[in-house]
Design a protein around this nucleic acid. Structure first.
Length: 536
RNA sequence: GCACCCGUAGCUCAGCUGGAUAGAGCGUUGGCUUGCGGAGCCAAAGGUCGUAGGUUCAAAUCCUGCCGGGUGUACCA
């Protein structure tokens, strides 16, 4: 419908004013109509004509569009369109069936990326939930998404953890071994030496005991991650390890020096400053690749494994934004096409209203603790439903915020069945489903699809869904869906307050609306990877 | 110092590809209530959209300065 209006407007503008405009169609406030355009204002500005008259002329040209009931000029020169009830009604049927503009495209989405031997903290949890939702969003548009993750399986943090494993009693959680090793490294010079020694052994794999501890720790870590991910209902398709990228990284850098990279003080660097970025070391003076080199190696590996991708998206915290610009600038000099297909999508820093934060300041709040705390809070407040809804609480609590800025998560608010929360939407779905169940299934065919005011409001809101998803896909912003679903539920509740469904003479039509509403809740929650139970 | 991000109601946030009286939730105050799951609905109070300018018919939205916060800034990831 939007597209149709656009075309008609563009044609009218061309005929009347010789303008080749790309009209913008937006959803205005309900009292103004169903669609709106400011095209007349734009044309009037360019040509110096009166905006009202311009609008009038355009509107006249558009008279007779069969699906539009009414065209009004309002305010400074907006043209508002009111659809016929029939069109609106039709739009509500099957509106949970989304268009698939990305059909068949292969898209890589990398996210999560916790390091083995360390605790998976709430920042990782946020990244997983965001990444998974982005993946679902792209899938909803037809893309074939590969969920990837990347893990630092070598480096000092590993040696610290192994040192902890060697010196501490068995049976503790891995994260605590790392914590012990990390503290010892700071405070005890002798321990630091030992850790550096262990680090070399890990690289060279020449110490049987250390090899064993390494394998043991790595396995335990990934088991632990897998458990948490399965709890979240998040899957990953392929896991890349930092150690795998080293060869590709060194080869890549060396064969592109001095063409792209330069030697400086014994290190090999990329001069980001020439592009207004930071200059960064890619191979350090001891000949070892840094993180940036390994990420280039990773890009190569991904390219090797998935040569035909349309896009590659990497989701990390925004503290890495500058770094990724440098990395991508270097990659662009080598393979412009690949670099152009690669997007870094940063998310903000997660903290809690309780003051807890992810690891930046040192005191770690683990993903698992948060999940447990949320579950406990939910169960205390709602003994009957808490266990069913706490995951929705966490996911929705994270995803309702615009991606990119820092967010503050309030456990209590997220768990609440009132207000803008995941459990509220789950409840809304269950309630709608209850109504559908209760009705007799013999839905008489509709003869008349003219709508009463409250029905029309609901139908109008329902019909927006595909547009909202389209926007969320284009912007890679799942929060649009979260906010829409909440508004939709409010609209339904308003309708429901005034309009009886079962037993009413308008039952058939209203049931259809309720069904469309429930379907959209389910579909939208699905994109956020939140379940929509039929009963709570 | 330089670069990037951010500053909207008491709190947490939408709105930012310029448009019509700046919207939600929580919290506060008042009302609806023998209900198809009221876990809801209606209403009120609460905002110089950090600040000072600029561009424009039109600025929370674009540009500049300043203030405040975050992040990054050569061999960590």
């Amino acid at each position: 419908m939007q597209g149709e209006l656009k075309k008609a407007l563009a044609a009218a503008a061309n005929k009347l004013f010789g303008e080749n405009a790309e009209p913008e169609i937006t959803r205005p406030e309900e009292k103004f109509g169903d669609y709106s355009t400011n095209l007349a204002l734009q044309i009037a500005q360019k040509s110096g004509k009166d905006p009202h008259q311009t609008a009038q002329a355009l509107a006249q040209k558009l008279e007779g569009l069969s699906r539009v009931k009414k065209i009004d000029i309002a305010g400074p020169g907006f043209i508002n369109f009111t659809l016929t009830d029939e069109v609106l009604w039709k739009a509500t049927q099957g509106s949970a069936q989304l268009s698939r503009p990305l059909e068949g495209q292969e898209i890589l989405v990398e996210f999560g990326d916790p390091n083995p031997f360390k605790e998976m903290h709430i920042g990782h949890l946020y990244s997983y939930i965001v990444g998974d939702s982005i993946a679902k969003l792209l899938e909803s548009a037809g893309a074939k998404v590969r969920r990837l993750s990347y893990h630092g399986d070598v480096g000092l943090h590993v040696a610290k953890a192994i040192w902890g494993m060697k010196t501490q009693p068995e049976g503790q959680e891995l994260g605590s071994y790392y914590a012990v090793g990390s503290r010892a490294y700071e405070e005890d010079p002798k321990a630091a030496e030992e850790i550096i020694f262990i680090n070399e052994r890990v690289y060279k794999k020449d110490d049987e005991q250390i090899n064993q501890l390494y394998e043991q720790g790595k396995t335990a870590s990934f088991d632990y991650f897998d458990q948490t991910l399965s709890q979240l209902g998040v899957r990953t398709d392929k896991r890349y390890l930092e150690s795998e990228t080293i060869t590709a990284a060194l080869e890549f850098i060396h064969s592109n020096t001095p063409a792209i990279f330069k030697e400086s003080d014994g290190a090999i660097i990329y001069e980001g400053e020439k592009a207004g970025l930071h200059t960064r070391v890619f191979i350090n003076s001891r000949g070892l690749p840094t993180y940036e080199a390994k990420d280039l190696g990773l890009a190569e590996l991904k390219h090797r494994d998935y040569p035909a991708v349309a896009r590659s998206i990497i989701i990390t915290a925004n503290e890495q934004s500058e770094y990724f610009k440098v990395m991508l600038a270097a990659l662009r000099e080598f393979d412009k096409d690949l670099a152009d297909k690669t997007t870094h999508l940063p998310h903000g820093f997660l903290s809690l209203t309780s003051g807890k934060m992810s690891s930046r300041t040192g005191d770690i709040y683990s993903a698992r603790s948060l999940l447990r705390d949320v579950e406990t809070t939910a169960k205390n407040l709602y003994p009957d439903t808490g266990t069913k809804t706490y995951l929705a609480a966490v996911k929705y609590g994270f995803l309702k915020h615009r991606l990119g800025s820092d967010i503050v998560y309030d456990v209590k608010e997220s768990v609440s069945l009132e207000g803008n929360s995941g459990p509220y939407l789950q409840y809304a779905h269950a309630r709608a489903h209850g109504i559908l169940l209760k009705s007799d299934k013999t839905s008489a065919p509709l003869r008349d699809t003219s709508l009463e005011a409250s029905e029309r409001s609901l139908a109008r809101k329902i019909s927006e869904y595909p547009e909202v998803v389209e926007r969320a896909v284009a912007e890679l912003m799942p929060h649009h869906i979260a906010n829409y679903l909440y508004e939709l539920a409010q609209t339904f509740n308003r309708f429901y307050e005034s309009s009886r469904i079962i037993g009413d003479e308008r039952q058939a039509l209203r049931l259809h609306l309720a069904k469309a509403y429930a379907d959209i809740l389910k579909s939208g929650l699905g994109i956020l990877n939140i379940s929509a139970p039929e009963r709570i």
